[in-house]
């Protein structure tokens, strides 16, 4: 099913990107091949979210659309979900609501 640079569920927007965009919901057990590398997913990942296209080191810039969107807070293995837990802004803290609907950083 894979075509150059695109699997059934993952989309790379820019050639410099180290993240892929989920374009169809990913379920635990899903296998996707990207750039000849197979990743087996262990969790649900919703569309619009990002996964690492390769191993990313702590402090490395994360690129989407060819533009840096922040830095890795920890080592991120290929295929991992990238979000608030492992990516931080280089500009301003991201505020969001926790499970109790309280603003958290």
């Amino acid at each position: 099913m894979e075509t150059a640079g695109k699997s059934r569920k993952l989309l790379r927007i820019h050639r410099d990107d180290n993240v892929l965009i989920v374009v169809a919901p990913i379920r635990p057990g899903d296998r996707e091949v990207f750039d000849g590398q197979e990743v087996v997913f262990t969790q649900n990942i919703a569309i619009g979210h990002k996964v690492a296209v390769r191993d990313i080191e702590t402090g490395e810039k994360i690129f989407k659309c060819g533009v840096p969107i922040g830095s890795a807070k920890q080592k991120i293995p290929a295929g991992s979900h990238i979000h608030l837990h492992n990516l931080k802004s280089d500009y301003l803290a991201t505020y969001t609501l926790d499970k109790d609907h309280v603003f958290v950083k």
Binding site: K64, V67, I69, I82, L84
Partner: peptide
């Protein structure tokens, strides 16, 4: 910064956006 918030609402993060830079793109 003075306001203590970026232009970033909780719904943005639920939808998969992580940082203000990413939303900026």
């Amino acid at each position: 910064k003075q306001m203590g918030h970026a232009s970033f609402a909780p719904g943005n993060a639920e939808g998969g956006l992580t940082t203000i830079e990413e939303k900026s793109i």
